[in-house]
């Protein structure tokens, strides 16, 4: 008693890769609090529009509220402009939405991923108060520290002595990207107790969106 905290960390990992003609987003589906699991069936990817998805780990109540706020602002945009927001516009919208709570921040690690009007993949990640960063590949959340070096090595060819060529787009195909992120989540689930149950991969191309699901460790 007497030690109420308005925050919690519900764990989970989200990742994305921006390709030349695709974007791939992945998340796990475990929702934890402390050492217990709240739900094994809560993927952290949320579609925002035909071209844009949002993926987010952190404090789940803030995640849900942030999404509701984004949805409202995106619908007002449609009312005013008669069309959906572009992925770039959503990426820009994140900053004021998050910074608006600068002094009581949303405790979240969001990624916005989608296609631009030419079908090229775009990925942006944010800190809890809205600082945007744009990447070819990114991973955030409880498995971040474990898996980031793997992606650096395999995609960015950083910290490697081998002659692995830089696979970052345009070299990286969607098939290869799917395999890499699947492995990344299998690895994260192996060591991070807050990542597990299911990995959901969403691949977007100009042709459409495909969702894949694979089992992860459930312990």
């Amino acid at each position: 008693m007497g030690d109420f905290s308005p925050y919690d960390d519900n764990g989970g990992t989200v990742a994305a890769i921006a390709g030349q003609d695709y974007v791939l987003i992945a998340c796990d589906s475990r929702l934890s609090t402390g050492s217990t699991i709240l739900s094994r069936f809560t993927p952290k990817i949320y579609p925002l529009s035909k071209m844009t998805v949002f993926a987010c780990s952190g404090f789940h109540a803030d995640v849900l509220t942030l999404i509701k706020n984004l949805e409202v602002r995106m619908k007002l945009f449609i009312h005013e402009h008669g069309e959906e927001m572009s992925t770039k516009a959503v990426m820009a919208l994140m900053l004021p939405t998050l910074y608006g709570r600068r002094f009581f921040p949303f405790y979240v690690r969001p990624i916005v991923a989608g296609l631009d009007r030419d079908g090229k993949g775009l990925v942006a990640s944010y800190d809890p108060v809205g600082t945007p960063e744009f990447f070819d590949y990114v991973i955030q959340g409880s498995g971040e520290n474990l898996v980031h070096p793997f992606l650096h090595n395999q995609i960015g060819a950083k910290r490697t002595l081998s002659d692995v060529p830089v696979q970052a787009p345009p070299g990286l195909t969607l098939d290869k990207a799917v395999k890499l992120l699947k492995d990344a989540f299998l690895a994260a689930a192996e060591r991070d107790v807050y990542t597990g149950d299911t990995v959901t991969l969403v691949a977007m191309t100009a042709k459409g969106t495909e969702t894949m699901e694979y089992q992860l460790r459930r312990d």
């Binding site: 925050y7 709240l38 739900s39 789940h60």
Partner: peptide
């Protein structure tokens, strides 16, 4: 669905 005092809500076949 389940819901905690902080507003964490989720659905699951068992809660």
């Amino acid at each position: 669905g389940g819901l905690t005092m902080l507003g964490i809500s989720y659905t699951s076949p068992y809660v």
